[in-house]
């Protein structure tokens, strides 16, 4: 039953890229790179990787030459950058909390961003390569 539910979500979000359905915590682990972008990343980096400028800037990912380094992109997703929260699974954790993505998912979303939004980098990243990069060291604690 749960599997069917996940399938339906995947179908729903694939036809509605800019209007993502909500995915339960349990099902977050099933999202692919495109879905992760639509469900999470575009909250700040905006649909289409357009970025945004206000008091500070959310970098535009579209046609962004810095994405040539997959390590740079993967490390940023894993460990965060400035105010951006880390999405890598902290070391010393036997199991993932729902706010984290697996190494395979991080590889997938890195590949997605580097091959979409007018980016056309040919190299792809594997889950194993992401696993080889430094991960966050501790859990972030939550809000009031």
């Amino acid at each position: 039953m749960k599997g069917i539910f996940v399938m339906l979500l995947i179908l729903a979000s694939s036809v509605q890229a800019d209007s993502p359905a909500f995915t339960s915590r349990a099902a977050i682990g099933s999202l692919n790179g495109e879905q992760i972008y639509d469900h999470i990343c575009q909250g700040c980096h905006m649909p289409g990787g357009a970025g945004a400028i206000a008091a500070g800037t959310y970098p535009k990912l579209a046609a962004n030459k810095k994405l040539v380094s997959w390590q740079f992109v993967a490390l940023t997703v894993l460990n965060g950058r400035n105010g951006m929260p880390p999405f890598g699974q902290p070391v010393h954790h036997e199991q993932s909390r729902a706010t984290h993505l697996t190494d395979a998912q991080i590889a997938d979303v890195v590949n997605y961003v580097r091959s979409h939004f007018d980016n056309n980098f040919k190299t792809t990243v594997t889950s194993k390569q992401v696993t080889g990069l430094p991960h966050p060291t501790a859990e972030l604690m939550g809000p009031q």
Binding site: G43, A54, T137, P143
Partner: peptide, 20 residues
């Protein structure tokens, strides 16, 4: 209001860990 999109803060509040 989604705080990561707040133009003046870009987030709700700072999250520290024991390590940081």
């Amino acid at each position: 209001v989604a705080w990561h999109r707040a133009p003046f803060t870009m987030g709700c509040f700072g999250m520290w860990t024991a390590d940081t």
